[in-house]
Structures are given as C-alpha cells and as structure tokens.
Amino acid sequence: MKPTPMQTIPLKQSRTLRIEILRHNPADPDSHPHLQVFEIEEAETMTLFIALTEIRQTQDASLQFDFVCRAGICGSCGMLINGRPGLACRTLTRELPDTIRLAPLPGFELIGDLSVNTGKWMRGMSERLETWVHRENIEAIDIDAVEQRMAPELAEQLYELERCIECGCCIAACGTAQMHEDFVGAAGLNQIARFRLDPRDTRSDADYYELVGDESGVFGCMTLLGCEDYCPKNLPLAVQLAFLRRKMARQGL
C-alpha cells in the first residue's frame, strides 16, 4: 500500500501568511478601494476558503466573499490570487508565497470586497446567446417513450463542453473582455459550441451566426488564450474558439 502525502510530508515550520485584500464596499458612500493586510497562521492543508473564513471570524467580520460548495464544483469563488484568476476554495496556501494578494474578479459588477456579481453576467449571457436546446414542441415531448438514441462518444463530447462552471475566470483572464464589456468571452462562445454540437438543438449555423458572428462574439476574440490558460476546469477553449471561428467564417462568406 502506497502511503499518501498526508503521512509522508513532514510537519513544516508553520508560516505566518500576509494576506492583502483589495477591499471596497459600494454600499457605503465613504468606502474607497484600498488594500487591507491581514496576518494569519498557516495551518496544514489550509485553503483560501479556510483562510478567508478564519479572517472573517476572528479579524474582520465585515469581509465579503462568496463560497458555496468549497469543493471546486460550483464556481462561486473565482478571484484574483496574486493577480491570476482562480478558484479560491481549492487553492492551497502551501502553494502560495508568504504574501498573498487577493482581489475581486475584474469585469464583473462588484458587490463588495471579493464578491462580484458573476451570476448577473452569466444570466445575461445565457439570455443573449439563448443557451438552451431549441426544438419544436419542447413542451409536448413524449416522456413515456424510450429516449432518442445518441452515440456514446457524442454524449461524452457534450459533457466535455458542459463542464463549464461559469466561474468567470475566463472573463477575468481575457484582455478582450476586460476592454470590451459586450464581448461574450469564452464562457459564452463555449456555450454556442456546446449547443452547436448537440443534435437535439435544431438551430443552424445561420442562427448561431446571428448570435456570435460579430465583434462582440467570435470575431472579437483576439486569441490571447488567457481563457485557455486559466480555466479551472481545463476546458478545451482554444480548440472550441478556433472551431467556432472557422464555422462562423464559412457561414459569413
């Protein structure tokens, strides 16, 4: 039986972490964005979820941040960790330097401190790109009958694209999205790629072209590949964007 690191990693001298948090409470007219520094003792297997919770509980009860699943599944806790977007809940402090700077994800409406309104952005994106299966008479499906068949490989390919957790890291990592507020970003374009691949969706390339065949869609992307590099779920975004670009370019011609 192979031992796990839990047994083999020797107890290290614990560090004092210096956590610098970019704070701002828009609900308070007197608040201005500023860095606040907290110091905490690092614990074994401490994640940023644990660290931030401890800071709120013991040092500053007004600190705002979002965690839901704390298991890297729900996408709530995207933030800039030393300048790079990532999921705070599954970031272990032992992988970070002694000084950790945290800031809210840029490109989204700030709710307070590290909490941003990714939900509003994503809902807007969903409404705009109509990210659902379009088919005739969807309200009158025969749910007693055996389901339609699908190639097993196709189902797996669909799930590959369906794994997006809408955390917003790709938007925060994208220079284009940072500059152009109406750019749908990889999160949006990946959705189009996902539904385009789905045979249950009856939309044609002409329909998709209407949605993303412009500068706020696939042709706005400058291929900076921040999305590909910082996607916490390692979605194949570069491929999907290239694929969609080819299809939409053909459609546009």
């Binding site: 659902w132 299966v133 088919r135 969807i138 499906i141 749910i143 007693d144 009958a145 389901e147 339609q148 068949r149 699908m150 190639a151 097993p152 196709l154 189902a155 797996e156 669909l158 799930y159 369906e162 539904f195 789905d198 249950r200 969706d201």
Partner: peptide, 16 residues
C-alpha cells in the same frame, strides 16, 4: 419520465 424529459431538454447522459 423525469430523466427522459431532462434528456430531451439537453442533459448529455452517458449512453450504452
């Protein structure tokens, strides 16, 4: 019925 409805709506359940 629930799973068949969801399937028609787009859930990519793994297949045999």
């Amino acid at each position: 019925k629930a799973i068949r409805e969801l399937t028609a709506w787009g859930v990519p359940f793994n297949r045999v």
